[in-house]
Nucleic acid binder design. Structure first.
Lengths: 139, 139
DNA sequence: AAATTTGCTTGCAATTTGCAAGCGCAAATA
DNA sequence: TATTTGCGCTTGCAAATTGCAAGCAAATTT
């Protein structure tokens, strides 16, 4: 088991027991915003996660029911990683992190459309994206 | 300097460069929801942070402009830790983490009032709390 | 049949975290 | 005034986590 004990009964603390590291939420980000779905996809992202760390984080996310593995439709050599409903429900968290980040950091131009869509109508953005992700995960 | 280089220009990544650990957001949680404002207050919380970790996280949060230190009105031996506007702007992130956490974990009864207030009218909750925090920080 | 792709594992060094003790200054107590 | 206690840390060291580089089996492509 990779699962460790909860530090307290506080929901913030329990959530950080899962995501309180530099990588887990970046994997979720890629699943949500880049539609990444294979091991190789995650390795391609800009931050260049080490392969052993990627493997261990994917395992932990799966054990926590945030993502699930399934057969890739194209090839038996590939693995398809998909968000569960529990994982899709992290969308609002990712959105708020995005908004805070764009407020206090320089953000590349190519991300402006997404940020603007979020700002224009947050509820609608969540609605549309959630449905898309649920369809992608067969939910 | 405790500050380290950014892994990428992505706002999520940049944000996690600051908060991507098990403790930083718990300190923010205490500043926001428990009105903690001294070193001793932070040490009292349920998760029992080690004193050297607390010191290093407070330093990093200060260097990143999330919190600021000032003289305590009661005593020269105490230090007053306060959120900056940048820190107060994390309230929506903390709220979404709270909501996700209460959906997927057992949460103690004493936290239900806050969760219910958030669910009833999120925008109003943010409005009220932000003003309270700004007043507390003299903004 | 050989080379390449894919999703990992393994070993080891570097960094971060956690525990326990201690320390200087301020404030309360005797 | 002398002593003890409270507060905000620092220091040393062990344990755990992260990061780097290499390697590897099964599937796929050439």
């Amino acid at each position: 088991m990779t699962t460790s004990k909860k530090r307290s009964s506080c929901p913030v603390s329990s959530t950080l027991d899962i995501f309180g590291d530099k990588w887990s939420l970046l994997i979720i980000r890629d699943l949500i915003f880049s539609k990444s779905c294979t091991y190789g996809d995650f390795q391609k992202s800009e931050e260049k996660i080490a392969t052993n760390i990627l493997a261990s984080k994917l395992k932990a996310l799966e054990e926590n029911g945030i993502i699930k593995k399934s057969r890739h439709p194209e090839s038996k050599a590939k693995v398809l990683y998909q968000l569960t409903q529990k994982g899709i429900d992290l969308l609002p968290v990712l959105i708020e992190i995005n908004l805070w980040g764009q407020k206090y950091f320089e953000v590349p131009k190519e991300l402006e459309p997404i940020i603007n869509a979020i700002k224009k109508d947050k509820a609608a953005f969540i609605e549309v994206q959630s449905k898309e992700l649920m369809e992608a995960s067969g939910l």
